[in-house]
Design a binder for these strands. Structure first.
Length: 708
DNA sequence: AGCACGCCGACT
DNA sequence: GTCGGCGTGCTC
């Protein structure tokens, strides 16, 4: 029987391609294929059931790739229901090559208007990856983020071809108690409120160490008790090892933990386990929001403010937004939480669209640390005497310190070295970026440009320019000045190797090293009882970035990093070094004045028409020919200005802050809209019909998190 | 004439 | 995305 299937490929091209496929008339157990390679994979021949036997995986543990090859050349297998092909991954001839894609439609007639229909090369797997309902979600994601259906499905589904079981659980770490601890009154109340009725949107807003995780786990448990499934999102699984271990210990086989170390085959295996309903709790980073659960009852978004929930490539989805969509569709509850909510979340809470639940007490007997601000302008270099003295004292007490330094340099940012003044755009209020080649300060939101000043408009100093602390060398400098202290360094370079992060952290936890020096990642979720002092070497690096979220990020960073100090003791200490000791993001974070910070930030956003008072869509035009890239951006901007409502603003075209990446020139356009739905729809039609100059690509980023 | 490279558009 | 076709222009 000849059938026709619509296949969406993992390419930017929209629309599906139709292929023919010959299906067996019935499940006769006969082999319809002609390759005869099946004999080479003896444990595979009988189809689905055998795949899951552990012996199969154990038999050839080293030969995963080779085994996969055999299975790929295995033609349509008998004993598998492939009369319906929707949701299968397939391999098809595409031009001169083979490409994998997804079956997104089926038909029995050859489609009209298509002259040549080629035949599918192969059907991957023994069961479909998704069903119609799931495809609907994919269509929503693709259209919301202006991506093709094929690349969207590729981002949503696991890449493995053959299921492969996960190794047995490692030796159970007794440190992670399987039995829940006693709850505080606040926690009890929080759980009761979340469980009070099905659905709803909640925000657990609690200081670090106040027991959010336990609230989430109890809520998950309750939902699972009703036979429903739970998705538990964390920013980066490697750094939430503690949460993962606790969940493993408490939920065992009912949980699927999707982490970055899983191979594609293992991911597929977990995917199928979830799809069958064997795993009712899915824990994972961003992409776990696409877990194929049935009867969704709850999605937890832990550390909601985290930027890693936003995908960096097409489809540039925000897991929080997808979570809202899935919960709304399924009537499931959404529970988010953080010590530092995003400004958007805060706004939703103040509008009553998100129910706040506050946790105010630290559980482990700790209290909030003492916070000190050190003015870097008064000091020589990044390692100030206050900081060094603090480390020495802490060490003398036999306790530990964490030093945080922001990787992002600010050498692009022209500033006054005397008072810390930074030039900002009058209109956008973001930092102007210094372009050395042009000798101009440029706003990357609107394109505004000025000559750099010769002297500081604030204090008159002529000591202005670009340049700052290099991050390299801080470790050496520390080593030199504090030779008695052993230092552990954690950054993207040192953790590249598998397992090395855990090693470094373990040795710190055991007290073998006394000082942990790291980037962003030490700010998040790591808890070490021995830590007394936390130092931020340059707390306001983020403030110098040309980004309207700069203040929010700085506030969050200071607060989160501070949470690492004195978590288990009453005498924690935080030293915040800054060039701008008067900046509200710094001072309000230091004083723990959340409400004041959010209120002033919200007012600023309203005045400047930034989210949440407007929504942004960023369009990046890129290509090897600068002229054509500009031409494309200009003509599209012209078109939009005639088609979009008057109230929408089109900022730019302006060169991207990183104007050229690997031979590609980049120009951006930022749309600002107060009526998002309409703008989104109109932009969709405009993008569909616009034919950019050759070699010019347009990337759309809806609700961009960073404009860099 | 022969070839290298860059540009372009098709891919079911 | 990736591939091949083909035109321009350079070299033997």
């Amino acid at each position: 029987m000849i059938r026709y299937v619509d296949v969406a490929f993992n390419i930017p091209v929209k629309g599906a391609f139709t292929y023919a496929v010959e299906l067996p008339e019935q499940e006769t157990g006969g082999d319809t294929g002609e390759h005869g390679a099946g004999a080479a994979a003896p444990h595979h021949g009988a189809g689905a059931a055998k795949h899951l036997q552990p012996e199969a995986a154990a038999a050839e543990p080293q030969k995963e790739e080779g085994t996969a090859e055999h299975l790929q050349s295995e033609p349509t297998t008998a004993g598998t229901d492939r009369t319906r092909l929707l949701g299968y991954r397939v391999v098809a001839p595409f031009g001169k090559r083979q490409a994998t894609g997804f079956v997104v439609g089926e038909r029995s007639e050859r489609p009209a208007g298509v002259e040549q229909v080629r035949e599918l090369k192969r059907i991957v797997g023994t069961a479909p990856l998704f069903d119609e309902g799931y495809l609907e979600l994919a269509r929503w994601v693709a259209s919301m983020y202006y991506a093709s259906l094929g690349e969207t499905l590729a981002a949503m589904t696991p890449g493995g071809r053959q299921e492969r079981e996960l190794p047995a659980l490692g030796s159970d770490d007794a440190a992670f108690e399987a039995t829940p601890v006693t709850l505080s009154a606040e926690q009890e109340e929080a759980i009761a409120r979340i469980g009070a009725e099905g659905g709803g949107r909640y925000y657990v807003f609690g200081i670090t160490g106040s027991g959010k995780t336990e609230v989430f786990l109890r809520a998950a448990s309750a939902v699972m008790g009703q036979g429903k499934s739970v998705i538990y999102l964390v920013p980066e699984i490697a750094l939430t090892q503690q949460v993962a271990e606790t969940i493993k210990a408490r939920f065992a086989e009912a949980a699927a933990i999707i982490h970055s170390r899983l191979t594609p085959s293992q991911r597929l295996s977990e995917w199928m386990r979830i799809k069958r309903g064997d795993a009712k709790l899915v824990v994972g980073a961003r992409s776990a929001v696409f877990a194929p659960v049935s009867h969704l009852g709850l999605i937890v978004v832990d550390e909601e403010h985290e930027g890693s929930y936003k995908s960096g490539q097409s489809p540039r989805y925000h897991a929080r937004q997808v979570a809202m969509k899935r919960c709304a569709d399924a009537g499931a509850a959404l529970v988010m939480g953080s010590a530092t909510p995003s400004v958007e979340a805060w706004h939703l809470m103040s509008l009553g669209k998100l129910t706040p639940i506050r946790l105010t007490r630290r559980l482990a007997g700790g209290s909030m640390p003492a916070m000190e601000i050190v003015d870097l302008k008064e000091e020589e270099g990044p390692l100030t005497e206050t900081l060094l003295q603090g480390i020495r004292e802490t060490h003398a007490e036999g306790r530990q310190s964490i030093l945080f330094l922001n990787r992002r340099g600010f050498s692009y940012f022209f500033h006054c070295k005397s008072c810390g003044f930074v030039m900002q755009c009058r209109r956008c209020s973001v930092t102007l970026t210094y372009h050395k080649a042009r000798g101009r300060m440029i706003c990357h939101y609107c394109g505004y440009r000025v000559k750099p000043v010769e002297s500081c408009p604030e204090c008159g100093s002529v000591d202005v320019g670009y340049g700052g602390f290099g991050t390299e060398g801080i470790e050496d400098e520390l080593q030199r000045r504090l030779p008695e202290i052993s230092i552990a360094r954690v950054d993207t370079d040192t953790i590249r190797k598998r397992g090395s992060l855990e090693e470094v952290l373990q040795s710190f936890r055991r007290g073998e090293t006394q000082l942990l020096l790291g980037t962003q990642m030490v700010a998040k979720g790591l808890n070490f009882p021995g830590v007394k002092l936390v130092g931020l070497i340059h707390a306001d690096t983020g403030l110098l970035l040309p980004d309207f979220r700069a203040a929010e990020r700085t506030f969050s960073l200071i607060t989160q990093v501070s949470g690492r100090a004195g978590r288990y003791s009453p005498d924690g200490r935080v030293i915040i070094q800054t060039l701008r000791p008067q900046n509200p993001a710094v001072t309000l974070a230091a004083r723990g004045e959340y409400d004041a910070f959010y209120e002033q930030e919200i007012r600023m956003r309203e005045a400047l028409r930034f989210p949440p008072y407007a929504r942004l869509i960023r369009l990046v035009f890129r290509g090897p020919n600068a002229g054509r890239v500009h031409e494309g951006a200009n003509s599209f901007a012209d078109r939009l200005s005639s088609e979009l409502p008057e109230t929408d603003e089109i900022l730019g075209p302006a060169e991207c802050p990183i104007a050229k990446i690997s031979h590609n020139y980049r120009v951006q356009l930022i749309l600002r809209s107060a009526r998002f739905r309409e703008t989104h729809r109109l932009l969709g039609t405009a993008l569909e019909s616009f034919k950019p100059p050759t070699r010019v690509h347009i990337e759309a980023d809806v609700d961009p998190v960073s404009l860099l």
